[in-house]
Every structure is written in C-alpha cells, then in structure tokens.
Amino acid sequence: MASKKKLSLVAVAGAAALFASAAVPAASQAATTKTIAFVMGAINDPFFNAMKAGAVAEAKAKGVKLVWQGDVQYSPATQIPVVDQVLATKPDGLVLIPTDPVALQPSVAKAKAAGITVVNVDTHVNDLTDVVSFITGDNADGGAKAADALATAMRYTNGKKYQVVVGLTSATATTNVARLEGFTKAVAAKYPGIQIVDKAYSQSDSAIANTNVNNWLTKYPNLRGIFAIDGTNASGAAAAIQAKGLIGKVALVGYDAYPANVKLIQKKVFSALIAQDPAAEAKQAIDTLVDFWAGKTSTIVKNVVIPNVVLSGTTSKADLKAFTYVA
C-alpha cells in the first residue's frame, strides 16, 4: 500500500552545499541508448502501477530503455536483493524508492561506485550526497488540502463545533504521519471549530477500517466528518457511510485515487479524494537523469515536491481519469 511507504519529510537543508558535492556527470556515452532501472517499493501497488504508466510514456518520449523491478512486499529485506540484481546488470541510471532510509543507503553507495546515477522517488535514503535528486509527493500539503475539502463539505462556519475522526493505517508509516500532521496543522490554523475526536489504525485492511468507522458512527451521533488517510481506509469508511445511509450527512474525504473510490465521488459518498501524482514523479525522475547525462546540471533541482491534487464533484471527467491510479 502506498501508505506503508517510509517517507521522512526531513527538509533538505543546505541543498546548495550538497549540490556542490554531487557527482560529476559521466562523459556522455554518445549514441548508445541509456538504460534506466526503477526499483519499486511494492510492485503491485496501484500507486506504483500509476507511476509505471508515467515512466513508460516518458521513457518512450526521451528514447531511453526502461527496466521495472521490485518485490511484492514493501520491505527492505526483500528490496535489497532486488537492487543488487539490478545493479549487476549495470544500468546507466537507478531510480530507487527506498523502503527504508537506512537499510538502502549502502545500495546507493554501491551504485555510485559502479558509476550508476541515482535518483530517489517518493521516499529517500538518509544521506542524499550520492543522490542526484529526490522527488516526492507532498503529503503534508495533501493533509492540509484534505482539511480544506472537509471544511467545505461540512459547510464550515466559525463559531460552530464539528466533530471529525481520522482513520489511519499505522501510527508510524511516514505518509500517514505527514498527512495527519498537515491535516492537524491546517485545522488548528484555519478551522478552530473542528475537533478531532478519535483516531484508529486499520493495518491496511479495509474491513478493520470499516469496523472502526461503524463504531465511531455509533459512538458519536453528532459526527460531521471523516478523514480516511489512505486507500484502504477510504474503502472501509465509504462502505460504512453507505450502509448506515449517511451519504451527505457525514462528510468523507479520502486519499488515493483507486478506481473504485473515484467512482464513489460521483455518488457523493466521497466529498473529495486527495490523490498523489505518481506518473508526474516518474516523469520528473526520467527527465532529471536525461538532463544530468546531457550535462544540464544547472536545471536539476535537488528536492522536488510534486503537489497532491484534490478530486471532487467539480473535477472534470478528463482530470478524474488522468489521476485515477491504474488498476
């Protein structure tokens, strides 16, 4: 699940200093086609499938060869052997989604030693010295956007009280942490009437998320809104709202544009869905590598943040389609 990604949103301070020490581009090997290997977190996740679609399109556009690898589990223990295999095939560039900021650090060093250019996407290793660029979706911003969407859906007016709950997957998954932090900060700053009365964890299981929401709806008869922090929580909460006949009465803002959930925007079950843009992240990664090899280092940004998008009833059909994760 996208939510399991370990993403520490440590601000990359002193980017300039790091920049100076970045690897000198290898002399361009001219005519030969460059190979870029992507190593995923969990290869079947719809989030990464969407990323793949973006990567395939951009690789074609830029004339590079794309290698797509990853284990089914989101785990450093299974990812490291995959990275080793990929490095053995000597690609020109490695786009790595490290499943752990510490455990994957040696793999980056190994790649660098072999003359392979490394980019991090979505999550990053702790020491970015050997990493040309780190590209990620802005989860904190996504959380803030969720707060805005929820306030709008509840027709927030100052002076009134609004009870809301947050359904999470885990207390430590960094995407969850960042989204919750963004949400909480925005609520505190802009919507003092919103009280976050409860939180619970679903362990990536929609049925558990459903149980949590069912019980909250019983416990808080005046509940006005739910923020479901990822795809599985969104599915579970949507089912609870439908089963209890509360569509339009309890506002629901979800995360991740699973096709099934995007459809529920039209049914007004979701007031809004916050979506990441993995295809844009992949495109950015390929462009960065191509620019790097072409010597255009001045155009490369060390830390790229790609904003999350809000999908709601007013989003155009074309945009809904474009941002829906590939199943």
Binding site: Q203, S206, G236
Partner: peptide
C-alpha cells in the same frame, strides 16, 4: 457485502 467492493486485503491475518 460489507465493503461493497472486493478488497484484496480482506481476511488478512
């Protein structure tokens, strides 16, 4: 029936 969708994580653990 509960979720209105088939979820690949149903029954996990």
């Amino acid at each position: 029936l509960r979720l209105g969708v088939g979820s690949p994580t149903s029954g996990q653990s």
